[in-house]
């Protein structure tokens, strides 16, 4: 299939089979994270079918969302058998809703810390599911909370994980809290070496 501009899941670097395997991985990981969020909030959490995007760096940043949108983000560095970043993105209003559900004041140190803890719990659930499925040892490091422009956040992180290799891999899951205007994006950004290792462990590696 020839690559089409703007179409999701199209890449010359990864095959359809590999992207399907990664999407399935994201599905199971984010399913576990959604369950964790649901039990934390005592509400149902809906999960959309994840996307596996393998795109040139600049296009990957655009695919995540509008560059100038102000969002709250939690970044959880992952170390171990692979290196990756877990990135949670909330529209600012949704982060405020989430703080309300947790009974903390948004925009304060306590609010940021609660958002960071949500990121920690969701990221850890996701990573644990990933680790047991791909038989890997993975460890999350403490979360960072930053509210800023979406494009600035995503580009700053992706240039670090994929650097000069050209193609960025983004596993993107959307979670929505039922009966509350609160949705969040859950992204896994593996390093280029991390993607190769992950594909190998899933039995769809390049060698």
């Amino acid at each position: 299939m020839p690559p089409q501009e703007g179409a999701p899941n199209v890449s010359t670097d990864y095959s359809d089979l590999q992207l399907d395997a990664l999407r399935e991985l994201a599905n199971i990981g984010s399913g576990t994270a959604a369950t964790a969020l649901a039990s934390l909030l005592g509400r149902e959490v809906e999960l959309a079918v994840p996307r596996a995007l393998a795109l040139p760096l600049a296009d990957a940043v655009d695919a995540v969302g509008p560059a100038d949108a102000t969002v709250s983000s939690v970044v959880l560095p992952i170390v171990g058998d692979i290196e990756a970043l877990v990135l949670l993105l909330f529209p600012t209003a949704d982060a405020e809703t989430l703080c309300g559900l947790l009974g903390v004041e948004p925009g304060t140190e306590v609010g940021d810390s609660a958002i960071g803890e949500i990121g920690n719990i969701l990221g850890t659930s996701y990573i644990n599911a990933l680790a047991s499925m791909a038989a890997m040892s993975l460890e999350p490091k403490p979360p960072h909370v930053v509210t800023d422009m979406l494009g600035a956040i995503v580009a700053s992180l992706l240039t670090g994980t994929v650097g000069e290799t050209g193609t960025a891999l983004v596993l993107d899951s959307e979670l929505e809290v039922a009966d509350a205007a609160c949705s969040l994006s859950f992204l896994l950004l593996p390093t280029t070496g991390g993607v190769a290792e992950l594909l190998g462990r899933l039995g769809v590696g390049n060698d």
Partner: peptide, 16 residues
């Protein structure tokens, strides 16, 4: 050229 995160994964630390 900002440094938005102090994360040590990949080479993200000092790209800015």
């Amino acid at each position: 050229g900002a440094q938005m995160f102090d994360v040590g994964v990949g080479s993200a630390l000092d790209i800015g």
